[in-house]
Every structure is written in structure tokens, then in C-alpha cells.
């Protein structure tokens, strides 16, 4: 049994919120540089140059990469030999967000109710997905999710007869409909199988991979490649200005499903794919 005090969790989460919102991951920067080399459309290249410069300024000036510092989404793995001391784990995550967003001058983008829509003023509540696992570690993954790309995401409950081709058509159609809105070049998370909500979770968690890291199963990696080829054939381009780089990567994950179901979820992320994890 290992004890972890909530104060350590609060401080860790607060720092993580600021760090993740100001420092774009090296994997993303590398893929953006490659995209800049690949892009031949002039306005698209200009947009990529601005995106790269933005990442440098954000890191150097400790400014948020984007003004939409997101809804705070957490994936938490709690080892079953962990004892949380001094309070409640979920409340500690919310408190970490509250402090991190205030101390880091991040934007409060959460409203209290989908209809009343009063800003809660501290970016809480966070959206928390918690799993229990073996061992005595607590792993916290933080992903601020902006609205521009989240709003362009989609789910469809296909029929098994639609098959892989139906899934691929839905993915490409979703990206085409999104056009320039989700801040391309995008990263496309795809979840196929499971139940309705499982497909959505798979799609979101697929965004946590290093950008462009292929699925470890070769048959799924091939589908990712084909989807990327089709999406980049749409011509939407960086910032939607036209060009060959509409997506930086497609990440697909699958799960067993029902004999009568074929759910597919597409979670779109903007070029500023932000996430970070800590293990306590």
C-alpha cells in the first residue's frame, strides 16, 4: 500500500495544467515541421510557419499556445494499492484545475449548465475518466480540449454490413464537413467497436499517442495510412486555406463489439494537440 496526499495531487495537477497549455509537445513540433516542408500551397505554408512561430513564442513567453485553454479532460489510472490521504481524489483534480488555471492565467471556458450558460469562473468542473489498475501508482493524464475541434467531432452507429468501408467513409465525411473550422492540420482520433460511449472514449484516447505513431497492429496501421491519404486528398489544407496537409495523423483504435453493432467515433483535434501525464 502506498499513501498519496491530496495536496501533492493538487500541486501536481496545477503545474500540469500550465505546462501543457504553454509547451507544445516535441512530437507535435516535429510533425508540424515536416508538414511545412511538404506543403506547397503558399497560404498553407504561411499558416504552418505562423503555427511553428506561435509554439516558440508560447514556450518562451509562458503564454498559452491557444486562447482556448480547453475543457479539462483527465484520464486517471489508480493502482488498487494506492491510499489517497487528506481528501477526495476527484475533488483534488478539480482543485488542481482551479489553481492551475488561476495561477497560469488560463481561460475559464466552462459554463455551469448547457442551457443557463453562466461561466463558473475557474474552469471547473473537469471531465474525469477514472480506471482502477494493478499496482501502487497513480497516473494522471491531462488533456485540455478546445471547442473548435471538439465541435467538429462525430459519432455514427453503423450497421455491421457497412463494414470497414462504411467506417472509412464516415471518417472522411466528418473531416470534410469540418473544413477549416477545427484548426487544421488536424489529428484525427478514430474509435471503432465497443458501445456508443466506448467508441467515443477510444477515439479520444487515440489522440494521446505521440502524433503519427502508428497502431501496433499492422492491419490497423494500414487503415490509418489509407485514411490519412484520403483526408489529405480533400485539399482543405492548413487553416483551411487550401493545400495538401489537412491532417498530421490518423490514430485508430478498435474494441470488440456486439453482433449487431458497428459504432464509429471521430474525435478531431486541432494542430495544437496538448496533453501531459504524471505518475505519482
Amino acid at each position: 500500500m502506498k499513501s498519496i496526499h491530496v495536496n501533492d495531487i493538487i500541486n501536481t495537477v496545477a503545474n500540469l495544467c500550465v505546462e501543457v497549455n504553454c509547451c507544445l509537445g516535441d512530437d507535435v513540433v516535429r510533425v508540424l515541421r515536416e508538414a511545412y516542408e511538404k506543403e506547397s500551397a503558399e497560404l498553407g505554408r504561411d499558416a504552418l510557419a505562423q503555427i511553428l512561430e506561435n509554439a516558440e513564442i508560447a514556450r518562451r513567453e509562458r503564454l498559452p499556445i491557444c486562447q482556448d485553454t480547453g475543457l479539462a479532460v483527465f484520464f486517471v489510472e489508480v493502482g488498487q494499492d494506492v491510499l489517497i490521504e487528506g481528501g477526495n481524489l476527484e475533488e483534488a483534480l478539480h482543485e488542481g484545475v482551479r489553481r492551475g488555471y488561476r495561477q497560469g492565467y488560463l481561460r475559464s471556458s466552462v459554463v455551469d449548465d448547457p442551457f443557463v450558460r453562466r461561466n463558473t469562473g475557474d474552469n471547473t468542473p473537469a471531465v474525469i475518466h477514472m480506471n482502477v489498475c494493478d499496482g501502487n501508482l497513480l497516473k494522471i493524464t491531462f488533456m485540455p480540449k478546445g471547442a473548435g475541434s471538439e465541435n467538429m467531432s462525430g459519432l455514427r452507429m453503423l450497421s455491421p454490413s457497412d463494414g470497414l468501408e462504411g467506417v472509412m467513409d464516415f471518417v472522411v465525411e466528418t473531416v470534410a464537413q469540418a473544413g477549416g473550422n477545427p484548426c487544421p492540420p488536424i489529428i484525427v482520433g478514430v474509435g471503432a467497436g465497443g458501445s456508443m460511449e466506448k467508441a467515443c472514449l477510444l477515439a479520444k484516447q487515440a489522440l494521446l499517442r505521440d502524433v503519427g505513431q502508428a497502431n501496433s497492429e499492422p492491419r490497423l496501421a494500414e487503415i490509418e495510412k489509407e485514411l490519412l491519404r484520403r483526408i489529405n486528398g480533400l485539399g482543405i489544407g492548413p487553416a483551411g486555406y487550401g493545400g495538401r496537409v489537412t491532417a498530421l495523423a490518423v490514430h485508430l483504435d478498435v474494441f470488440p463489439t456486439h453482433i449487431a453493432m458497428l459504432p464509429v467515433a471521430v474525435n478531431i483535434n486541432c494542430h495544437a494537440v496538448r496533453h501531459g501525464e504524471v505518475i505519482l
Binding site: N54, P64, I65, D68, S108, G180, A239, Y241, H271, A272
Partner: peptide, 27 residues
């Protein structure tokens, strides 16, 4: 159109800012 997701860069192009209405709306 400005390039979405370049808020840090674009903030450097803003030389003054003053709230003129609805301060209660925050951002």
C-alpha cells in the same frame, strides 16, 4: 481569417486592450 491556434503569436500584435462593455462576461 487569422490562423486558428496562434493566440500567443497574435497576442504580440495587440498593443492595447480595454474592456468597453459587458465586463461580467469575463473572456
Amino acid at each position: 481569417a487569422a490562423v486558428g491556434g496562434t493566440g500567443a503569436l497574435l497576442s504580440q500584435k495587440i498593443i492595447s486592450a480595454e474592456v468597453v462593455a459587458y465586463p461580467e462576461l469575463g473572456p
